[in-house]
Design a protein around this nucleic acid. Structure first.
Lengths: 209, 209
DNA sequence: CTAATTATGTACCAATTAGTCCATAATTAA
DNA sequence: TTAATTATGGACTAATTGGTACATAATTAG
């Protein structure tokens, strides 16, 4: 009785050894999907438009990514990976405080330049998925905690180099930093004018001194 | 040639003098709708469930409220009216600082007690409507500005009675207050733990001193 | 060359969406 | 009583939703 589980032949890149080769780049399509989700939000992203953005057919879609939700999970992970890699990249040439400041600025510049803002895919998704997609919420919570830690480390580093006051501990300042950033994104979408934004930014900067 | 525009006979309450009388209370149904929208969000609220919540038929719905969007606009206005009336009511028996603090606490208590949070209908709607429902966004921006002014007045009043530091002007502190509140709502939905919430609240309170 | 394996194109599906149409019911004005 | 007016119930629509089924195409292992 040879009850052998068939081995799925895959090479080192994860692509199939046998069978008809894919006519698209899985990772490129994933990135296109991520950007579309970022624009529209999970629920508001329709499968039909998703396929157009990714430039693949419905069959290829389900063959490769299994479901809209499974694809979105990969997009979320790709997003957070990109964001934290950006931080680590910046850290090679800048001090921690400068990276923190740039991260804030980059989020705002998007709005200043184009008059609209996408915000953070992770936090946007948190709102959409809350109480509606519990398994996605769990993934989001996990990623959120990772970001909180990342910023905490940046702040601690800034405190050690004397750029940031040690009046409050790094964890608390990380919470305040994230809270400020998220609040700004919301207020901009609510139509807050530039004065409000600048006042909030100034108020935050004073807390670091 | 008597080209007379027919007058719609309505009494002082706005209800029709003639014709079959409504079998439901328009304002009660409106409040039920508001609560459902608050729970679900505008896009995510389905018409069929909306009708169940309001306990009216589809024909009555369109007869009375014209469209989902028109109803939502009335719900938004009802919401902001309720909120500002609550503030003015509280102000009769409490100082401005206490009202500000209670407003924050009430928002958090909801979460502490039931493990979930609805947040602010106005700000939730700002996220959903942004770049998708421009006319709703305009209404939201208008209401948002009114709230910013309301809190600014409360803070100025707190400054005059010496409860709030005058280090920052009232407008700036109003921006920071709203920003903090919105950030908290987002972070809670992202799964932030209680320590984070408390740290943000503490950070904000220090800014008032 | 054949079998196994994977990818793709096409057709399909049930459920849901906001909204319309129209007949009928219930009321008031004249 | 009749006409005007408003409310209600029920059937209907066109579009869209995420997802499935299956035949066929393209590839590799043996």
């Amino acid at each position: 009785m040879t009850n052998v589980v068939k081995k799925s032949y895959r090479n080192s890149l994860g692509s199939a050894k046998v069978g008809r080769p894919k006519e698209f780049d899985e990772d490129v399509a994933l990135m296109l999907a991520m950007n579309y989700f970022w624009d529209k939000g999970y629920d508001n992203a329709s499968l039909s438009q998703l396929l157009k953005e990714m430039k693949i057919s419905k069959s290829s879609f389900y063959q490769t990514y299994n479901s809209k939700q499974a694809l979105f999970e990969r997009c979320l992970s790709l997003y957070t990976k990109h964001q934290s890699e950006w931080v680590k990249e910046q850290l090679k040439e800048k001090s921690a405080v400068m990276v923190l400041d740039d991260f804030l600025q980059v989020s705002m510049i998007e709005f200043q330049q184009f008059g609209e803002i996408r915000g953070c895919l992770l936090m946007n998704s948190a709102q959409v998925c809350y109480k509606k997609h519990p398994d996605l919420s769990l993934l989001i919570q996990y990623q959120f905690k990772a970001f909180h830690k990342l910023f905490e480390q940046l702040i601690r580093s800034g405190q050690q180099s004397g750029d940031i006051s040690s009046r409050h501990n790094a964890s608390m300042l990380s919470s305040i930093y994230i809270n400020t950033l998220n609040g700004l994104s919301i207020m901009i979408k609510a139509g807050a004018d530039d004065k409000i934004i600048q006042d909030v930014l100034q108020g935050f900067n004073l807390q670091l001194k």
